[in-house]
């Protein structure tokens, strides 16, 4: 494999250097296999399942569809960067407490997507929630507990105002 690309990515606030990589590698691959950040998952590599959702300059994107080498000037946030100091965020806590996690493979992508949603729209309607996460496929839960987790997060944010 002719692997001679060298570049740096800004991930979770850190500059990380990518060494000796092949130019065709997706952001998903580079995060997982080169930068030691396997929290982002791949389940389709076609932009259909949302397991690989990360934030790029504040927008939720499918890391499988982004060429890593084109992301050099972007700020990337992965699920690992959502949590600061090992405490769970309120979204993460609600996912655990409301039963939104079964196998957990879809979970990191959903966590990123929900943080993104509530960051932009703190009081989403039922349909705004559904639409916002409709790009994240979960095969285990049927989504009922996922909705419950999002609603619980919104409630607790409203309560603590």
């Amino acid at each position: 494999m002719s692997a001679n690309e060298f570049y740096s990515l800004n991930v979770n606030g850190e500059t990380m250097s990518v060494q000796d990589s092949w130019v065709g590698e997706s952001l998903l691959y580079v995060l997982r296999e080169r930068l030691g950040l396997p929290g982002t998952k791949g389940a389709c590599e076609q932009g259909e399942c949302g397991s690989c959702t990360v934030l790029m300059d504040g927008e939720a994107v499918c890391a499988c569809l982004v060429m890593a080498a084109t992301a050099v000037n972007s700020e990337i946030v992965t699920v690992e960067g959502i949590t600061t100091d090992s405490e769970l965020t309120d979204v993460q806590q609600s996912f655990v407490e409301e039963g939104a996690v079964q196998c957990g493979f879809c979970t990191p992508g959903l966590i990123v997507a929900v943080h993104h949603l509530l960051g932009k729209n703190p009081q989403p309607s039922e349909f705004e929630i559904k639409e916002a996460i409709s790009g994240n496929i979960c095969r285990c839960t049927g989504y009922g507990r996922v909705f419950a987790a999002v609603e619980a997060t919104i409630r607790s944010r409203n309560d603590s105002k």
Binding site: K41, F95, G104
Partner: peptide, 11 residues
Amino acid sequence: GAHKVQGSFEF
């Protein structure tokens, strides 16, 4: 659960 929501659960 905590590991799964943080992305640290090892698949």
